[in-house]
């Protein structure tokens, strides 16, 4: 659609700008201020320059948390995206079954994140949870509270359970937008199931998949509540991700300066990834 040049449109955007700026810019400025000072209380503070940044950038624990974070984000993307596409392809398209399947699939998305953690905390326990008990039946000494590998697997499983529906629903809506004529043409050509997927469905899914990857990457990059409830970041630090190390530092140890410097580095990484994705999406829309 061609748009009209009109700078008065700014008045329509102004309320949004003000309300988001209040919650975004003032805190961001404060974080920047904290990051260059050693703060004991608002009246006792010393300017330390870039010392915290140096400390944060060279902090081994944060490197580990960052690596863990990337491994986690890529693992869940590698599972959730293909699985989500598969589910979307299997979802019924017509009648009562379609509405019902849609509602049921969407349920995990509407559960508060701490309750998601609680559900898996219960479900994974060998004494009172079905999953834990089944693992025990299979002869695996499954215990997410003491075995780092098990904790890691439980967090991944929980995230896949929680968020695959989002990818599935995105893809489902993408598939709904394909005109029936395309399938008819494929049937006349006797195209194989794979060919239909590869040349008709997948191209239509590109747009929604980019949104899916963007949302899943970003949200998994700031995951906090679910592992916090499930494992508290443990055992040891095996499931401590970036947000959690940040909260530990800022609120647990009240190290305002280093926590603020950490926040800024974290934020810059997010900003970079976000910009790359956004530019890609805009680029693809322009090509169409």
């Amino acid at each position: 659609m061609t748009k009209v040049e009109n700078n008065k449109a700014w008045w329509l955007v102004l309320p949004v700008f003000l309300i988001v700026a209040f919650s975004a810019i003032i805190p961001l400025m404060t974080v920047v201020n904290y990051s260059v000072q050693d703060i004991f209380d608002p009246y006792t503070r010393y300017f330390v320059g870039t010392e915290w940044f140096k400390q944060v950038m060279l902090d081994e624990r944060l490197h580990d948390a960052l690596i863990r974070q990337f491994i986690f984000s890529f693992t869940i993307l590698a599972i959730e995206i293909p699985l989500g596409i598969m589910v979307a392809l299997m979802m019924p398209t017509k009648g009562k079954g379609a509405s019902l399947a849609l509602i049921l699939v969407a349920i995990p998305l509407l559960i508060p994140w701490n309750v998601v953690g609680t559900i898996w905390q219960i479900f994974g326990r060998a004494d009172i949870g079905l999953f834990g008990a089944m693992m025990a039946e299979l002869g695996i000494n499954y215990n997410y509270a003491s075995e780092p590998m098990h904790a890691w697997l439980t967090v991944v499983l929980m995230d896949v359970w929680h968020w695959t529906p989002l990818v599935a629903l995105l893809c489902y809506s993408g598939l709904r937008a394909i005109p029936e004529v395309y399938y008819q043409a494929a049937r006349i050509d006797k195209a194989s199931r794979w060919a239909v997927f590869r040349y008709i469905q997948l191209p239509k899914l590109t747009n929604v998949l980019i949104i899916g990857v963007l949302l899943r990457f970003m949200d998994s990059f700031m995951i906090y509540t679910e592992p916090f409830v499930l494992t508290g970041g443990g055992p040891g630090t095996s499931t401590t991700f970036l947000s959690q190390s940040l909260v530990q530092q800022a609120i647990g140890q009240f190290d305002l300066g280093p926590a603020a410097a950490f926040s800024l580095v974290y934020f810059l990484i997010i900003l970079l990834v976000c910009w790359v994705f956004y530019t890609t999406i805009m680029h693809m829309q322009k090509d169409k």
Partner: peptide, 16 residues
């Protein structure tokens, strides 16, 4: 606007 959707709340916790 979108970058705010992506910003981790943990970053803004204390100033908030």
């Amino acid at each position: 606007l979108l970058s705010n959707r992506m910003a981790p709340p943990a970053v803004f916790l204390l100033p908030f």
